[in-house]
């Protein structure tokens, strides 16, 4: 699971959960995969993501290179875009779990794939 995916994931479809965001990450195995850098792609992605959630997710994985705020004029800062590129797309949580902030429900991550399937008693019929 990439942190860009994590930035959009929520447990709000669970019965009794209202926001379910952000899910906290308990990582057991983190890998780095190389992804081709596309500065235009990263620049376009930055305004779409929840920056604070990305920062704290990265921090919880021991990645502290991101500033707390998006820098000015980021579109033209290759170094900054590269850092963001790395955090968004190259960090891959292979094993671990995601945790719902409201109920503590754990969603396991196996082989890099979060299991967001809900049981019948966790959904509205």
């Amino acid at each position: 699971m990439k942190l860009l995916t994590h930035n959009m994931l929520t447990s709000k479809c669970m019965k009794g959960v209202s926001v379910g965001y952000p899910l906290s990450i308990k990582a057991l195995d983190i890998r780095t995969v190389e992804v081709e850098f596309n500065p235009e792609f990263v620049a376009k992605m930055i305004p779409k993501i929840d920056w604070a959630v990305l920062c704290s997710a990265a921090e919880s994985l021991g990645k502290t290179e991101l500033p707390k705020e998006v820098i000015d004029n980021y579109e033209n800062d290759q170094d900054f875009l590269k850092k963001v590129h790395h955090i968004l797309l190259e960090v891959d949580v292979i094993d671990g779990e995601l945790v719902c902030p409201e109920t503590g429900r754990k969603f396991p991550i196996n082989n890099g794939i979060p299991n967001m399937l809900l049981n019948e008693d966790e959904i509205y019929l």
Binding site: M1, K2, L9, K12, C13, I113, P114, M116, L117, I123
Partner: peptide
């Protein structure tokens, strides 16, 4: 190398 998650299409775990 594709990014995925397991879910039922009746409850998409996306914002």
């Amino acid at each position: 190398g594709f990014e995925t998650f397991l879910t039922n299409c009746l409850q998409l775990p996306f914002k």
